[in-house]
Amino acid sequence: MIGSSWGRPALLLALTIALLVVGQLVLPGFIGLGQIANQLKIAAFLGLFGLCQTVVIAAGGQGLDLSVGAIATLGGILGAALMAGSNAMTIVGAVAAVGAGLGVGLLNGMGVAVLGVPPLVMTLALSSVVDGGLIVGVSLAHPADAASPGLVAIAGRSLYGVPSVALIWAGIAAIAIWLLSRSAWGRQLCRTGANPVTARLSGTHTVRVRVMAYMLSGGVAALGGFLLTGYVGQAFLGLGNAYVLTSIVVAAIGGVTLAGGKAPYGGVACAAILMTVLVSLLTAINMGENGRQIIFGLTLLVFLMIDRRLGAQR
């Protein structure tokens, strides 16, 4: 049930509702409209970074992108520097941020698909270069770091009660689900991940597909970092760090298997919502960063074990 394409999202949503009910019982007021809107906002960011991992893991070859945090920080800092607090320049900042993310993703993809560097090593090494470069850039240039009022409105405010960043996420998620499970490119991606040899023999340009997967991951991560700048109000070093672990957690819980070839973004999106509610519940009962890390790690292990069991049965 958990493995089928609808069972998993349904289970994750059921767990989310159960958590919300528990939250309401422990802390009356946990299920308020404002609360839920707020959680959707946070889930939107997690969901965007989860998309990055979904695409590169599906591309196979032990795919993983550990540079999403560094790329997000890059997107945030570069975007903030270019827009310099002005609404008119916001779009320029956004385009530059996404462009830079695509660029880093291109390097990741070339290293992984062309040179054959293991994704773990490639993305980790490149993320230390990007982080190091940002330290230099920020120390030398002292760029503007504030988000423009327009970006703050987009990332932080709501439209008729629905947070606008959640609407952006919904749009991207719809495109992603179509792209990954309905489009020709999505089929090529999953074929490449499942078995690169047969994919190549049946005419799929596997190198190009993998490079594009890492570019997509970089672009989305940078956009996530840019929007995050608007949500927090300013860009800073280490802005995206927290999303490296969490993005992999939601991808794994959402049903992306490390073996590659599967890209169920619907499940990943539901996992992002579930983990956001879990974190907010843990925060509400005053659990610190330490407890959250432990719970994240254990949740990931439990889901890996469930998947393993189900995989063995089939």
Partner: peptide
């Protein structure tokens, strides 16, 4: 039988 790459990532968080 969990994949070590992601399983040790999880235990690392713990």
């Amino acid at each position: 039988g969990l994949p070590s790459l992601i399983a040790t990532f999880a235990t690392g968080a713990v």
